[in-house]
Nucleic acid binder design. Structure first.
Lengths: 110, 110
DNA sequence: CCAATAGTTCGAAGATTTTGGAACTATTGA
DNA sequence: TCAATAGTTCCAAAATCTTCGAACTATTGG
């Protein structure tokens, strides 16, 4: 296992997160659902698949890229697969309360 | 002053607000700034103009439309002009904490 | 090693957004 | 009543996003 042989992806520093980018990343239904799923805990890429959806690998990968570049998730190599996780602490530090508000299910009632 | 002669614009009911639509509306820098400006209080359309920006009327109007259709703002006729205001209560009821998190200035610090 | 696995990246087509000029509409001050 | 004011709507061009097949890259089980 050569050092640096794994394909590390770029992640913005917590301090560099941009609110509009985060909001944009979360403004897509599929990406929002991925985010909610990740709130339960880290997952491998394939398991991020939104409910009932069978997005092609490339599409799912693109959504993850959007979330990652906005700083919402972290995507690290793990053997043959990858672990995707929510950047909870970084988001909370930079935009306090945002994640909680977004993850909270909307009150029922028409 | 004929009844119904004023140009009323459509506004979604509070219960029908969609989170992803709200997030999308707020994900544009100009629209986010308009929203922040409105947090201080209602304004006429022209006064919503983002700082230093001199957006053409039509562009500004379009941004307001996006915010209005997402349910972020209300835009009502008022004489020759219009009053634009933040739908604070509706947003708070439907997505508790969201507006506060978005309006709060990001913590300083690199 | 080799093949299978798990994903990313490339590229291109189609859909949506963004922008802004021009035309249009109400409303009011003079 | 008329012109000026304050905005919206219409339209089209340019930019950006979304989607997904296909090619490519690591990694590991056998």
């Amino acid at each position: 296992m050569r050092p640096g042989s794994t394909r590390e992806l770029a992640h913005p520093d917590a301090a560099d997160l941009v609110l509009t980018d985060v909001l944009f990343a979360l403004s897509d239904p599929a990406r929002l659902e991925i985010t909610r799923r990740l709130a339960e805990g880290p997952l491998e890429v394939a398991a991020c698949q939104p409910t009932g959806g069978d997005l092609p690998k490339s599409t799912l990968s693109h959504h993850l890229k959007t979330l990652r570049e906005a700083g919402v998730i972290r995507n690290v190599p793990h053997g043959r697969q990858r672990y995707v996780s929510l950047r909870r602490d970084d988001l909370e530090q930079r935009f306090p309360g945002l994640l909680a508000a977004v993850l909270r299910p909307a009150p029922a009632g028409e």
